[in-house]
Simulated scan of single mutants.
Amino acid sequence: MPNNQTKGLAQGAMMIAIFAVLIAISLYVPLVSFVATIFAPLPLAWYSSKYDRNQSIFVAILAIAITFFIGGLLILPFSFIFASIGVVMGITLQLKKSKIFLLMATGLTVLITFAIDYLITLKLFEFDFIKELMQLMRTSYEQSLTLTQNITGQSPITTENLELLFEMLETTIPAAVTIAAFVLAFVIISLNLPILKRLGVNVPKFSALKDLKLPRSILWYYLIVLSINLFVKPEVGTTLYVICLNLSMVLWVLLTIQGLSFILYFLDKKVKLTNLIKVLVILLAIPLYSFVVLIGIVDLGFDIRGLVKDKVQK
């Protein structure tokens, strides 16, 4: 037992050091900062998959504290998010949960830690970084419009439409943050799990996208939100309007993924799918997302996969 504890402490210290180095690289080395950021949860994920929960949380707290001496107070929110991601990933892997569960847990961790960081910076430092980011985007966009107008002699967008655009962006911040959190979680999982597997950790696998079937309840949520927009018609700026708009964005993304899944399923039954074809389908789906959403709705509402399967077998 003492040997196991000594080994755990030694490996914990090593993981803390690696985590601190990755955070330092992401802070001070611009060219590889994104790569270091994506792999920052890796050491704590590995440690949390090998040792018990309390020990893993203690190591993560120490890792966050160590980063304070690297980047000061401003780095703590950043290291808090990625240390939490690592611990949640490791615990989920230790419990042998599915990859979908891992994605949901990691995405929720990103959302919760981001919300905590936002509230702390807002209350303690009276600094709203979302508002500052929106102001920076507005300034940058206005400068680009001015440059375009000076070159072409006409503005590509009116002042009124510009105001409407940024009002829409501000309204959809909750949905944008939610989608971004799960995209980040997906990228982190996809890139870190192969390495964890090489390090001796049992990792789950995603089913192929063509086999994805989201819960049918998503279709009902979409129909409810659509009905509210059509019949209640909430006024712009009201709470109901904000809720419906953000839910619509999230549901559009989910239905687009479902539509892509059916398209890949259909093509797989007709031709041999290569990675190139998959990439082309996904790229073509971006400008045709309305059509893809419609396919996703039909796929969830009706068993058209069964019809395709029966037709192919015949």
Rank of each mutant, 00 (worst) to 15 (best):
A63N: 05
A60Y: 06
I64C: 09
V88R: 00
Y222C: 01
E235H: 06
N192Q: 07
L124I: 15
S56E: 07
V236Y: 13
I195L: 13
E132V: 14
L255M: 08
D52S: 15
A60I: 05
I61D: 08
S56K: 04
L119D: 13
P194W: 04
A65I: 15
R305H: 14
M168D: 12
I228M: 08
L199D: 08
I66D: 05
A20Q: 03
G72Q: 07
I112V: 15
F19S: 00
L247Q: 09
S56Q: 06
V232K: 11
V87S: 03
A83K: 01
S48T: 05
M137E: 09
T6Q: 11
V281E: 04
F129T: 07
G301M: 11
N202K: 14
N161P: 05
I85A: 07
I120R: 01
D268I: 02
G8H: 04
M137S: 13
A285Y: 08
E163Y: 12
L164G: 09
T37V: 12
I70Q: 00
F125P: 00
A60E: 07
I151Q: 08
N275L: 10
T256N: 11
S227F: 14
A24I: 01
L191W: 11
F69M: 10
L93H: 03
M134L: 13
L209Y: 06
A36C: 09
L267I: 10
L209S: 07
Y141C: 01
A65D: 07
I61T: 10
V35S: 10
V253Y: 15
I173G: 05
Y221L: 14
A40L: 00
T178C: 14
F101C: 08
I70G: 05
L245I: 14
C244L: 05
N275Q: 11
D211R: 12
R198C: 07
M168A: 15
L73M: 14
G153M: 07
T121E: 11
L27M: 12
K205T: 12
I218T: 04
Q313W: 10
K314Q: 14
T106E: 07
I75S: 05
S49H: 05
L27H: 09
T159E: 13
F78V: 04
F80K: 02
K96P: 06
F266P: 00
K311I: 10
N246V: 02
K213N: 12
I304Y: 07
F166C: 02
I116G: 04
F266T: 00
N161W: 11
L95Y: 12
S155N: 10
I263E: 01
K97R: 14
L42R: 01
F206W: 07
I18R: 09
A65P: 01
G8E: 11
D299Q: 08
W46Q: 02
A60H: 08
S84D: 03
P77G: 06
W220M: 13
L108V: 15
I130M: 13
